[in-house]
Design a binder for these strands. Sequence first.
DNA 1: AACATTTTCGCAAACGTTTGCTGTGGATAT
DNA 2: ATATCCACAGCAAACGTTTGCGAAAATGTT
Lengths: 328, 328
Amino acid sequence: MNNTTLKNISQLLDLSISTVSRALKNHPDISEKTKRRVMELATTMDYEPNANAINLRTNNTRLFGLIVPSISNFFYDTFISSVEEECRKNNYSLMILQSGDDPVIEATSLKLCRQNRVTGLFACISSHTNELEPYIKFKELKIPVIFFDKVPDIKDCNKVCVADAAAARMAADAIIDKKKKKVLALFGSERLLITRKRLAAFKETISAKAPSITVLIDFASNATDAATLTSKYLEQKPDTLFCMSDEILTGAMKAIQKNHLSFPDEISIIAISNGFIPTLYYPEITYVETSGNKLGKLAFSSMMACLEGSTITQELTTETILVEGGSL
Amino acid sequence: MNNTTLKNISQLLDLSISTVSRALKNHPDISEKTKRRVMELATTMDYEPNANAINLRTNNTRLFGLIVPSISNFFYDTFISSVEEECRKNNYSLMILQSGDDPVIEATSLKLCRQNRVTGLFACISSHTNELEPYIKFKELKIPVIFFDKVPDIKDCNKVCVADAAAARMAADAIIDKKKKKVLALFGSERLLITRKRLAAFKETISAKAPSITVLIDFASNATDAATLTSKYLEQKPDTLFCMSDEILTGAMKAIQKNHLSFPDEISIIAISNGFIPTLYYPEITYVETSGNKLGKLAFSSMMACLEGSTITQELTTETILVEGGSL
DNA sequence: AACATTTTCGCAAACGTTTGCTGTGGATAT
DNA sequence: ATATCCACAGCAAACGTTTGCGAAAATGTT
């Protein structure tokens, strides 16, 4: 069986296509009686308007593209989840593309978005993307682009980010408040912008407010790495462990468990996190929240602002909060 | 600036639209020279075909719909990730919709899929969906539907599932092999089909092969619940803990940590899991894998089979394997 | 040189909508 | 009675493609 069309309905009712079209959208030009006849037949025939035809005719897909390194990720999955929810509530559709952090795939994904005539784009650029040209094409076409999380280093574009510096500062402040003396601070890969930002803010805060604290700093490229490093530094008996991210935290916690260290008695722990991982341990880990959900909602509202004509480009950040577990 | 169209190109080159169209797809009717001229101008003008127009004309969107309770979920995020990847590799697009486990949202999502004329649908039905009618409409329209994970209880439809019974059996076998005597077995909500399946297989295996084992069974509706239950049953000194799912496992592990039980010395642990959570602990938890990634690939290949005309409807399951951590 | 082929391209319809404009009756006002 | 207006509905173009068919130009065959 085929999909029913306006034409089908119009023929069965001996009406014109335009009348049927207008009847279905409750146009005042159509009499109540005809409307009723049309709507009735439409529902019994299970009519669903052809989105492609509508998009073509109106030149307006209510479709957003979203490009992300990976869907299955602590942070991005919650981001995506929020954006999708907002889209649904606002009657937009969403096309989610994974780049795998590969600039080539990212480029073809951008093409796909163009071909589908997205009305807006959420993009998290790959680590090695240096070709920003495809993105400026969007600008030419007046298709708003909201960069999130990993954003390009250029001026006039819209970005939403977690407050990297603020989060690191907040964590440092919490450590200082607790009068800690020797902190093992683990960060992610040194070549990531996010690492550099968090590192700078963390170091700065400590040295400004409590220069007497000893800070052991190192960088892990993944969880396994973090576990190894933690084990190593544990020999120096730090009284506090700070983890820059969830991934680092998971690795470090394995070392903690392996060495049978109880927290917060033998070592205090604090992290910057999306919120889920810290709840897996007992006591729960104290963390500074960088919420994917919040960022998603922020990105969406930023998109809406663009579509409503706002022409100012800005970098927005989510507010960060300290969530007390029992680990600090 | 507007998107460039075939018409634009044709006018600039003093050719007909059809010639340009054919030139771009390397049609043999067109001379090499014109092809070159057309392709050249097309790239400099950054031509991207309008997917909506193509879909409308060819009556073939290469678009799949995917309905899932939630994107941010241990299991579904990996499932989605795999499906998306397969889609990309096979030149399909994917529209992901979250139902929030709400039948109403599920229904409107189905509508959306219809309107967008998806060529196929992956669906995980909500817990309380009893209206299967929208789905049979897809059947009438000859749009293949692949149900995954939570599937309806009817015959002639395609389903892909993790091997619930097999996984539970495998876990039970592992416990029996290790000559355990007293097992605390925690399951999810009793009203879920998945719980009943796993429970039945687990009990059956134990009583068939090692009826002397004492089995303490209870049901938790969430992680917190699981933690409470675990703490309670720990008083009875079970030598083994079995968790039906990742969610249960996370809860139970908090109780283990709270009670400072070391594993596998004081208690052995085994779970059925997607694979990520078990790696968070030290030693890592031994688990029977139910891979979202594998299920995603299975779902996709099942979809391809349908599109290639296969008319047989079947229920496929992923093979399960035991992944040894150090906890058993 | 006349004809047959092949190469190369254009015409026009169709996909399913939306929407500006026009047209028809009938009711109301003058 | 005529003019005016309103309620209701249809015509037709347009959105950007694809594609069957026909036609002209170029080439090949006697």
